[in-house]
């Protein structure tokens, strides 16, 4: 499955009806050591661009926005128990939430890997 990215440095990967969301490797490196993650309740519905989680490092706090809208069907307890997982595996085991998307077409507005890499070069 292809991974897409938002300008706020979230990634999203669709498998079937459910998309997994996390923060990009670039985002975790900018945050520094992640010390705390606040995840939403299962069943919560979010619109594209709305805050879905909060991630804190020692020196920064950031909201994580939903790259596409949908219902939260699963959250990653592993990063709550061990926030350093976000640093070690931001784009794999360090995922944040799984969303059942309400409109898959919203993904089309996001960047693919090549576009995101190019975007990072402009920062």
């Amino acid at each position: 499955m292809t991974t897409r990215y938002s300008k706020d440095h979230e990634w999203i990967r669709l498998e079937g009806d459910v998309a997994t969301v996390g923060i990009s490797d670039y985002a975790q490196s900018q945050l520094g050591d992640v010390v705390f993650v606040d995840l939403p309740a299962k069943g919560k519905t979010v619109d594209a661009g709305a805050e879905v989680a909060v991630v804190e490092s020692v020196k920064a706090a950031s909201e994580v926005y939903a790259p596409a809208g949908g219902e939260v069907v699963e959250t990653n307890q592993a990063i709550v128990d061990d926030p350093s997982l976000v640093n070690r595996a931001a784009q794999t085991d360090g995922w944040f939430v799984k969303l059942k998307l309400s409109n898959k077409a919203e993904l089309d507005a996001l960047m693919d890997q090549a576009a995101y890499d190019a975007y990072l070069k402009t920062l």
């Binding site: 705390f36 490092s57 020196k59 920064a60």
Partner: peptide, 12 residues
């Protein structure tokens, strides 16, 4: 836990 505080979190 200073990420709760104004100098980092600002309006939040």
């Amino acid at each position: 836990l200073s990420a709760r505080e104004q100098h980092i979190r600002r309006e939040k």
